[in-house]
Simulated scan of single mutants.
Amino acid sequence: MTQAFVAVLMGSDSDLPTMQGTLDILEKFNIKFEAKVTSAHRTPAATHSYVADAESRGCKVFICAAGLAAHLAGAVAGITTRPVIGVPIDCGPLHGQDALLSTVMMPGGVPVATVAIGKAGAKNAGYLAAQMLAVADDELAKAIFEERADSALAVGEKDRALQAALKG
Rank of each mutant, 00 (worst) to 15 (best):
A75L: 10
L72Y: 04
F5C: 04
Q20W: 03
R148Q: 12
C91D: 09
T2K: 11
C64D: 09
D53I: 04
V135Q: 13
M10I: 01
K36W: 00
S12K: 06
A52C: 02
A52F: 07
K142Y: 04
A152V: 13
G118C: 03
D24C: 00
D15C: 12
L100D: 01
Q97D: 09
K119R: 15
T114V: 09
T18F: 00
C59M: 14
G121A: 10
G126W: 03
K36F: 00
M19L: 14
A161D: 14
V87K: 10
V115R: 04
T38C: 13
V155K: 14
E34K: 10
L140Y: 07
G11I: 07
N30V: 03
L162N: 02
V37F: 04
A149K: 15
I79L: 09
G126Q: 03
K142M: 13
A73C: 11
V112T: 08
E146D: 15
F5L: 02
D13V: 13
D138W: 02
I31K: 05
A66E: 07
K119N: 08
V155D: 07
E34G: 04
Y127K: 04
A164L: 14
G108I: 04
L166G: 03
G121Q: 06
R82T: 01
N30D: 15
K167V: 10
H48W: 01
E34T: 07
L16Y: 14
A120C: 01
L140K: 09
F62L: 11
A154V: 03
V76A: 03
A154Y: 08
V76L: 09
K32M: 10
H41A: 10
D90S: 14
K142E: 15
H48I: 01
L100Q: 01
N124F: 07
L26N: 04
E139N: 15
Q20A: 12
D13Q: 14
T81M: 13
G74T: 06
K158E: 12
G78Y: 06
I25C: 01
A116Y: 08
N124Y: 05
F33A: 00
G96C: 07
A73K: 11
L26D: 04
K119P: 02
S102H: 00
V155H: 07
L166N: 12
V115C: 05
A40S: 13
V104P: 03
A54V: 06
G21R: 13
D24F: 00
G11D: 09
M10P: 06
V51P: 04
M106F: 02
H41Y: 13
A141V: 09
S14F: 06
D15P: 12
K167Q: 14
P17M: 10
K32Q: 14
G109S: 10
V37S: 10
K167M: 09
P107Y: 01
G67L: 09
E157W: 02
A52T: 12
G11S: 10
V104Y: 03
V155W: 02
T22R: 00
C91G: 07
V155Q: 11
G168F: 06
V84Q: 08
V76W: 07
Y127F: 15
L16V: 11
V61E: 00
V84G: 08
S102G: 14
A40F: 07
G118D: 04
I89A: 10
M19G: 06
Q97W: 09
A120H: 11
S49E: 15
G168T: 11
A77Q: 08
A141Y: 06
